[in-house]
Write a protein that binds this DNA or RNA. Structure first.
Lengths: 390, 390
DNA sequence: CTCATTCGTTCAATGCTTGAACTTAGTGCG
DNA sequence: CGCACTAAGTTCAAGCATTGAACGAATGAG
């Protein structure tokens, strides 16, 4: 048992600190602009900075083609204001996703608007590393506009730590492989690897915050993944294993799981389990059956909802976040799933004070993950504005 | 579903920021001093600040009686250094604990050294608010030395949110009562209320960090509480309900729990359950039986360890912290408990990369909670050094 | 044309750390 | 005893991003 020393914060010189002040204010201004465009005077009012500072801060952003000054707007009395917004020819970010059954890509601008997107259904389980990366690189090239590129966010269905895929039950071939480096070399761009559940959660947080505060985003493909957002940041844990809701135990002597444990939520509420119980092969077929009132399908979804609710209740009793967002396949099924989930949560989540737990469905659809992947890049650019001047 | 706006950071004036720089450096210096005493030159080397800044920063701390300059030490060549350390007559912090079966108090200095402590076994379940607070206030007065008092940390066995006890299954009479205010008025001191599990965890983090990084501290009395430490801070969640390990479900159709759920860890690994299964009434009797190899006691502890291990595995799969600290009664039992806990964790915690999970026993004993309560106050004083000049 | 109004720019003042130069207070050696 | 050497602690001008007030610019109302 090591008696470690209390961590000592790095001190900084005053000059460094003043630079940090500037970068922090730059971030504040960019955040305000992500929210919506505005003139210098408007931004000054919204950020609490002075007009003088705003002129000063926006000058290099305009000079470097990050922002653009619109024509003066004639609105009432006084000198007309010239709104600033992100330059339509300014930098973009790329999101890419490698998944079991598809590849997807999307480009977005700093304002978060989608520029171009593609989703290609493919079973890549038999493809090798190079084939996958080649195809993905081609897709990225196809959708990348002739504008500066800030970088690529790459989503994979598995646990990522220190830029390496360390666990991926459904894509075992890719574990430990140089995914980010491989794509980076092909595209000559910075590539950041992350888990798809984390990125789907991020998509609900940036550039617009869906929930307003902490939340968990839950989605299901073969496995179940939860992205936990705490204090405006995706919580990843010490080794990237945080939020593995799929392996929360709900019956300690229950069904064996591939992970070695028993009674994992995944074995009761995973998409494959739901489909099998419902006697369907694909999600859209299941959705149709549910719409038609098929009892077998309804029973399967209800059973999954109950199991998921138990797991989520446990998660809520540990993380105490106020909101759960159902995403991915769960969002598609939420109409027939929510009641069971909510019911289990209501009986099992500890209550007290004015605590409330909301359950909502994601509005983002199948592009949530790639949007989050691209958002990872634009978000970093805004949070570290020095990157914009590289 | 509200589409909230992205949070905008408060900007600050440069002057404000320069003040923050000073306070931040003051914090850095105080943290270094909590680690161990040292001369200005030594502190400069350890903090990375210059000797000039150190002279400047320590001057008011010396003038205000926070620090004291020892006699020069003659160590080798050059001008002898004069070590600085916390003034032995300087400010103190008080920790107090209201629990089902005892009241406890402790005073510590800014260096974290215990000045005085008391633990009084009492069943307070039948006592009213005023009686409890009166007795506690008397105890605090008895152990408070004639030195400036920074404040009081008050620990209670229940969920605390916004300074109010919002849930306490074992002390229902005190829920919603003005505990902090009541004690504050009696002592004419600031009182900060918090959950005992959080404070026990804090005691392992401050002033000396037991684990060196993120960890969970688990303890059991009637209920089971976990204090989760993330990034050097106790994680409390949106409503103070974070870390309710006792109500993690391990058998969804298991034993009914007082919380309304079924199969909560608490129903299998709570201290009351262990004692009952072992046929004992008190912890020390159980410990003795275990030492003597009593099979019934051993079985009871092993069963509890298995249940706890399942719950902890779930926690680890959600929080991904590298270390679990067994505290309170579990620390007493750990010799006979750890194997079962570790075994369940080994099979159920997702592994990958170089992930490691450590299970250690707390060395702090029965004063962990009050030490944490007092530490809450000294920690705040160090983190917000402006409080020291009030 | 003049006044009112709002937008955007210019500029001196502010305050904390730095690093170099300096003072202080010891040791070691002839 | 005195002089060189070493390290601790102190003094002081320089540096930088924001501020707020004053100023210039651009329009509508009368």
């Amino acid at each position: 048992m090591c008696l470690g020393r209390t961590a000592i914060l790095d001190p900084m010189t005053t000059v460094d600190h003043l630079r940090q002040v500037r970068l922090g204010n730059l971030r504040t201004v960019l955040l305000a602009l992500v929210d919506k465009p505005g003139s210098r005077a408007d931004l000054a009012a919204r950020t609490g900075l002075t007009k003088a500072t705003l002129s000063n801060l926006t000058e290099p952003l305009l000079a470097n083609g990050i922002l653009i000054e619109d024509a003066a707007t004639l609105a009432g009395m006084g000198r007309p204001s010239k709104p600033l917004r992100f330059h339509p020819g300014g930098p973009v970010a790329v999101g890419a996703e490698i998944n079991v059954s598809h590849l997807a890509v999307e480009t977005i601008g700093l304002d978060g608007e989608t520029i171009c997107r593609r989703l290609v259904p493919t079973d890549i389980r038999n493809s090798g590393l190079n084939e996958v990366l080649d195809r993905l690189a081609t897709l990225v090239r196809e959708i990348t506009p002739p504008r500066p590129v800030l970088g690529v966010g790459l989503a994979v269905p598995g646990v990522v730590h220190d830029g390496v895929l360390v666990r991926a039950p459904n894509l075992p071939k890719l574990v430990g492989e140089p995914l980010a480096d491989g794509l980076a070399r092909r595209l000559d761009l910075d590539v950041e690897l992350d888990n798809e559940a984390n990125l789907a959660a991020l998509a609900h947080l940036w550039p617009r915050h869906l929930a307003g505060e902490d939340f968990v985003h839950v989605s299901a493909d073969v496995g179940i993944g939860a992205g936990v957002v705490l204090g405006g940041e995706v919580y990843r844990g010490a080794s990237g294993f945080a939020g593995e809701l799929g392996h929360v135990v709900i019956e300690r002597n229950g069904v064996r799981c591939t992970c070695g444990s028993r009674g994992c939520v995944e074995r009761y509420a995973g998409l494959d389990v739901i489909l099998k119980e419902a006697g369907r092969r694909r999600l859209d077929s299941l959705a149709k059956a549910l719409g038609a009132g098929d009892p077998k399908a309804l029973r399967a979804v209800q059973a999954a909802g109950e199991a998921l609710g138990v797991g989520l209740a446990t998660l809520m009793n540990l993380f105490d976040v106020p909101t759960v967002v159902l995403g991915g396949s769960y969002a598609v099924l939420h109409e027939h799933l929510s009641a069971a989930v909510q019911s289990e949560m209501d009986t099992r989540v500890l209550a007290g004070g004015e605590r409330h737990t909301r359950l909502v469905a994601s509005p983002l659809g199948e592009f949530a993950v790639v949007r989050g992947a691209a958002g990872l890049i634009t978000r970093r650019a805004v949070q570290q504005p020095e990157r914009l001047f590289a």
